[in-house]
Amino acid sequence: MDHEKKPLETPDAFLNALGDSLKAKDGVDTDLASILTTHILKAAPAPNAVAQAKDAIVKLASERADPPKVEVVNG
């Protein structure tokens, strides 16, 4: 039997790499990817990680729905 004793890649390392590749992917919503990376793609997520991520996504939707007015400064 082939016994490969190479240590497994740690979940943390795998998730970090996964987060980076997700953000670098073409056409991906990077704001959303950042939220997922911050809250979900963690080896030891916060107990309320899902709630935090949801709040962040809802806030993002609100900001996109009502973007801050750009003030035009003359001169």
């Binding site: 996964l18 997700l22 992917k25 991906v28 919503d29 959303l32 990817a33 997922l36 793609l41 996504i57 809802v58 993002l60 939707a61 609100s62 996109r64 729905a65 009502d66």
Partner: peptide
Amino acid sequence: LRTTEELGMLSEALTAQAATI
């Protein structure tokens, strides 16, 4: 309505990103 629409788009994007993950 706009927020709901944005959330809908984010929901679709989330589905896509979750599928990738």
